[in-house]
């Protein structure tokens, strides 16, 4: 019984990890890749480790396994947020099929001089970085991403 439960969590986790790998290779721009990698990777490995916790069924080992889940679910989204912010900041282009970008026109997009992280680092590097803060992101499309016309069907089942 315990093994069946653990085994099904293993299979689920393996499938999600597979999908994370496929997603990161197949998605067209950095942000969609981040979505695929963060979500599928975190839940996939989370499922695997939950299976391990069920499998060992021992106070110490299961607690350690649950601790790994806790760390993953706390750190993975924070890491994704920081990479996404940095990527947007240096002007990594969005996919040509992107329909709306409210951040581009927003007045508060640059990471300002009073930013916490920048202040912590200090020095000449911080000066140099803040000078180039308010440049607009690169409007040219990605080199590797050929433009596609986003035609979508209205009866898409996953559409909200």
């Amino acid at each position: 019984m315990k093994d069946i439960l653990a085994g099904s969590f293993f299979i689920l986790g393996g499938l999600f990890s597979l999908l994370a790998g496929l997603g990161i290779l197949r998605m067209p721009d950095s942000f969609t890749r981040m979505q695929a990698a963060t979500k599928a990777g975190t839940l996939g490995v989370g499922c695997l480790i939950l299976g391990v916790a069920i499998y060992f069924a021992d106070l110490g080992d299961s607690t350690r396994a649950l601790l790994v889940i806790g760390f993953l679910f706390l750190t993975a989204p924070v890491a994704a947020y920081i990479i996404a912010r940095a990527a947007y900041h240096i002007g990594v282009p969005l996919w040509s099929g992107t329909v709306i970008d409210e951040l581009k026109d927003s007045p508060d997009r640059g990471i300002g001089e009073d930013d916490q992280i920048m202040r912590g680092a200090g020095g000449a590097g911080a000066q140099k970085a803040s000078a180039s803060d308010h440049t607009t992101p690169n409007p040219e499309p990605a080199t590797g991403d050929e433009p596609r016309t986003p035609d979508h069907d209205p009866d898409d089942p996953t559409d909200r």
């Binding site: 496929l22 998605m27 942000f31 969609t32 996919w95 099929g97 329909v99 709306i100 951040l103």
Partner: peptide, 12 residues
Amino acid sequence: TISPLNRMKPGV
């Protein structure tokens, strides 16, 4: 991930 890419309409 497994459907054609034009199903997506990403945006910020």
